[in-house]
C-alpha cells in the first residue's frame, strides 16, 4: 500500500520516521530519496542527517533547533512541493561490476554451512527452482539482466540493498534460518526481493550465488573513486553485474591487490522517474531472459 499521506512517527528525542507506504515498491524509495535530497538543499534548520530506506525516511534532528511538530510540518510541506514521483529526477551513478556467478568461493561457504549447521540445497539451484527458472544458468541470465537500484545502505556500513529496475528480472528468496557464520568478501546474494553485496567477510542470511572482485569498502584509501569515503556506494546509485569466469575474477583480484584496477563508473546521468515508468509500460512483465 502507498499511503495517501506519509505517516510521521516519533523515534526518541532526536529522530523521527516518515513512512510512505508498507510495501516493497521502487516508487516509495524514489519518494524517500527525493525527499532526502530536497531536505538537504532546503537547508531546513535542525536537520542533522537523513537515512532513506525501502519505503521510509529516518530523520535525525537537533531538538534544540527545531521541535518534533515543526519538523513534521516542514517535511510534509517539502514532500508536497515535490509533486508526484514522476517529477523526480535523481543523480545516479552507474557502476559496472565484473562478477563471477556460480563461483567456487560461495559454493564453499554454502557447503561449509551444510556440514556445520544444516544440510541445504545449493543456493543458485534453490533460488532458480522457487522462482520457476529452468536452471542455475538461467538464474545467472535473469539476475545479470537488469540494472540494480541502490535503495539503501546499512546493516553493515557500505552494504548496498538493491532492487531490480527491470521487472522481468524480479526474483524472491527467503533468508537463511539460522544465518551463515561466514560469507566471503564481495559475495552477491539476495533475500526477500533485494540483492546485496557483502563489503567484507561477515555472517549473513541472504541466498548467495556470485562474487565480485571489485572492492566496495576501502579503509586503506587505495582508490580515488572512493573520494574521502570508506564505502563506494550511496543511495540512488545503479549497479550492473557483468558475468565473468573464475580466471578473470582472479586476474581482476590481482589488479585490485596491486592497486591498478580501473573502476568502471558512469557519473553524468540523472534518473528520471517519468522516463523509467514510460519504459516500464512498454515491457512484457511476464517475459524472462
Amino acid at each position: 500500500m502507498i499511503y495517501d499521506e506519509p505517516r510521521i512517527l516519533p523515534a526518541g528525542d532526536c529522530h523521527l520516521l516518515m513512512e510512505f507506504g508498507n510495501e516493497m515498491n521502487l516508487e516509495l524509495n524514489f519518494r524517500a530519496q527525493g525527499l532526502a535530497t530536497a531536505l538537504e538543499t532546503s537547508g531546513t534548520k535542525g536537520v542533522v542527517e537523513t537515512a532513506p530506506c525501502f519505503a521510509s525516511l529516518l530523520v535525525h534532528y537537533d531538538p534544540d533547533a527545531i521541535s518534533y511538530t515543526d519538523l513534521g510540518r516542514e517535511l510534509r510541506a517539502i514532500g508536497e512541493s515535490l509533486g508526484p514521483p514522476e517529477e523526480l529526477e535523481l543523480d545516479s551513478r552507474l557502476f559496472v561490476l565484473p562478477t563471477c556467478y556460480l563461483d567456487p568461493w560461495t559454493r564453499e561457504a554454502i557447503e561449509d554451512y551444510g556440514r556445520k549447521i544444516a544440510p541445504k540445497e545449493w543456493d543458485p539451484a534453490f533460488v532458480a527452482r522457487i522462482n520457476g527458472l529452468d536452471s542455475a544458468e538461467q538464474l545467472v541470465r535473469v539476475h545479470a539482466g537488469t540494472e540494480y537500484w541502490v535503495a539503501a545502505l546499512g546493516f553493515w556500513p557500505g552494504l548496498p540493498f538493491m532492487m531490480a529496475l527491470d521487472p522481468r528480472c524480479l526474483l524472491t528468496a527467503p533468508k537463511y534460518d539460522p544465518p551463515r557464520l561466514w560469507t566471503p568478501q564481495g559475495t552477491v546474494g539476495m533475500g526477500g526481493s533485494s540483492t546485496a553485496i557483502y563489503p567484507v567477510a561477515t555472517p549473513g542470511g541472504y541466498q548467495i550465488f556470485a562474487r565480485t572482485p571489485v572492492p566496495i569498502w576501502d579503509t586503506e584509501k587505495r582508490f580515488d573513486v572512493f573520494g574521502d569515503d570508506i564505502c563506494l556506494f550511496r543511495a540512488g546509485d545503479r549497479v550492473r553485474f557483468v558475468p565473468v569466469g573464475a580466471d578473470e575474477f582472479t586476474e581482476i583480484e590481482a589488479r585490485v591487490a596491486e592497486r591498478r584496477y580501473v573502476f568502471n563508473v558512469v557519473d553524468y546521468q540523472r534518473f528520471s522517474v517519468r522516463n523509467y515508468k514510460r519504459w516500464l509500460a512498454t515491457l512484457d512483465r511476464a517475459a524472462r531472459f
Partner: peptide, 22 residues
C-alpha cells in the same frame, strides 16, 4: 496481517532505518 515482504515473524517489518536507542 501484512504483505509478505515484511517477513514471517510478527516482529518482522519491511527493512527500515533504525533510530539510535530503538
Amino acid at each position: 496481517d501484512k504483505p509478505p515482504e515484511h517477513g514471517s515473524a510478527p516482529s518482522n517489518i519491511l527493512d527500515q532505518g533504525y533510530p539510535l536507542g530503538g
